[in-house]
Design a protein around this nucleic acid. Sequence first.
DNA 1: CCTTAAACGAGACGGTACGTCGAGTCTTTCC
DNA 2: GGAAAGACTCGACGTACCGTCTCGTTTAAGG
Lengths: 198, 198, 198, 198
Amino acid sequence: MSPPRRPGRPPSQLARTKILKTAHDMLIKDGFGRLTVEAVAAQSGVGKPTIYRQWANASELAMAALMSGGPVKLEESGTNLRSALTAQMRSLVQAFATTRGRQITMTLAAADPESEYTKAFRNQVILSSREAGRALLQEATVRGEVTLPQDVEVLLDMIYGPVYYRLLVGHRPLDAGFAESIVAIALDAVANADRKPR
Amino acid sequence: MSPPRRPGRPPSQLARTKILKTAHDMLIKDGFGRLTVEAVAAQSGVGKPTIYRQWANASELAMAALMSGGPVKLEESGTNLRSALTAQMRSLVQAFATTRGRQITMTLAAADPESEYTKAFRNQVILSSREAGRALLQEATVRGEVTLPQDVEVLLDMIYGPVYYRLLVGHRPLDAGFAESIVAIALDAVANADRKPR
Amino acid sequence: MSPPRRPGRPPSQLARTKILKTAHDMLIKDGFGRLTVEAVAAQSGVGKPTIYRQWANASELAMAALMSGGPVKLEESGTNLRSALTAQMRSLVQAFATTRGRQITMTLAAADPESEYTKAFRNQVILSSREAGRALLQEATVRGEVTLPQDVEVLLDMIYGPVYYRLLVGHRPLDAGFAESIVAIALDAVANADRKPR
Amino acid sequence: MSPPRRPGRPPSQLARTKILKTAHDMLIKDGFGRLTVEAVAAQSGVGKPTIYRQWANASELAMAALMSGGPVKLEESGTNLRSALTAQMRSLVQAFATTRGRQITMTLAAADPESEYTKAFRNQVILSSREAGRALLQEATVRGEVTLPQDVEVLLDMIYGPVYYRLLVGHRPLDAGFAESIVAIALDAVANADRKPR
DNA sequence: CCTTAAACGAGACGGTACGTCGAGTCTTTCC
DNA sequence: GGAAAGACTCGACGTACCGTCTCGTTTAAGG
């Protein structure tokens, strides 16, 4: 009933905070490739074992740092699918069109895909918007606005995949019209219409 | 008229081949994270400087190894857009649904995005199918099969991005129906129809 | 009063011992030219950085290894200058007439003459016998056995220099009579005598 | 009857000269430790094999460079042993009191003591003055100026050894009075005298 | 209040790989 | 057919980090 508190000195919340702060700054400034446990320890004034006690390697630390700001907040105001989805995509693109987006991509690429830590990162940072989008689509279906294709998963990938595709490949920037264009094309594919009889 | 041959011992084509072969095998077997110049040199019986004379680091070497098999061959038979695009996507998915696909993704993520080598890799390995797809779409437009949206670039990203998205994030496999589903949804977005008057 | 212990894990005395032992063996067996930090690390089962943390390069390591056996012990029994100096020279020649002597010479030649490490090596290994000899000469002067020349430094160089000269140039071996001959000639130069009036 | 000309392109005397010049400059400027075949080839505009065709390694090249200026010229004017020997020692000290002296010492220390090249270097550069000194001593003996000790070799080592001893150990400079002091002490040891009856 | 136990900083440890330099050899074209 | 140029294999360099391991020092909970 009592909180099962173990004896001994409890982990320092301050140390954890300093580590994550330093790691995040370093990620933004120098990129994932320069994020070393050694440097984070030195710069945050913390011993290396204190880091290794919480994260197994630099990838996990990077993921923790990228998650530490809380989940990406997505605006989803909108009375119909188009406006809601556009608002969401706009804030998503805005959040990723920075250095941070590229670092998230690189961190994910470097992470052990089987690790629990990686799965949590994936769900919180990468797939949460995809799930939000799925909800929007389902609501719109209920409202009769759209008719979803058989394979909704693929539709979702077609909406959210291009964001990471551009970050990864870098052939084109994540710019302003990107969100609108995606929504427009996606809705053309699913929009209900008397005009789409067959 | 004579071939402008420089003096000195010419680079050994054999060495180059052995290096690329070893690097490719190592990529497939152990992954990009384990591909070290040291190990490639040791395993291919080549000196490290011989590797560094041609590639600046492990990333470039990995890209060279992944390109050394020649470009991915895409089937594009088909009389209409749907069949041609489906054939292409099928062979693309098949080519990437292996370990190689994941390694290509990780290699690209780790590469210096500004390097000339990276750009070549991107064009040859990642974007060549996208360009082929663009050609298919344009031909179909000429034939009157489809009406392209304003932002064709985004449409192309929606077709090819999901492949890398799934490789990168790993939330779903690149399976059989994937190619068909993408083509189906994409064509729904652009298919010409009297049924889509305005 | 308490020993001023710095924080952190203390250097491993075992590692240091293993390194010096290995380096010394290698010096005697293969010579200074073959003493590489790489080989010492491999053979002593120690990481390279552990060596570099204590010595800046192979020269310093070699000097440390040559000093690690403690200073050369010189016998100096003798009631008069001749017997004392002869005893000292005999043990000096014996100590240097081995491979070790040649390695000391080569190590000294290769060392940075300005380095503090080199100076310590010089004083402990090369000049300590010279200083002992100076003491013997001074005592004998006090006893009235000899009259020293103006430039005692040169006299000392004439006594001890030939040892290293033969090691370096190799024109003649460091053999048994060498010690006696040097002492005999040196004493001829300084021996007091009514026979050497003015 | 025809001059015995071998076929093929004759060795370039110019190349040889350039190599030796470059090697000598490099020795004086950067020291023996920095004299690499690579650098000499690059700086003299000659291929490495051209160097290796004539010298087996950097040591031999260094010795050749140090010998290329011709033997050290020693003044030996003097009517009696003291003046002749002093003149000789003065010019010897002067010749070696420069960077060149130290490089000669280091080169000798690094050379393979068994090699023919090393022996030639030793005889021409190191021991020639010693032999000249032996001649002076013998002439003086004939003239009745001095009585040589049993072991003349050791006496010679005591005269010439200190020069290299100071160069090698560096505890004292090769300065002006050095030559005089050595001669003075040496002559005290061998000077004939009624004053030295026993 | 005073053990007890864990987390702390510091930093050395054995390792792996880095990217560079130089050695000495080999292969080609040029005189 | 040797000179010259330059790529080759090889080995060692000295550095950066890895992830682990003592150390001696806090810091809190529980006896």
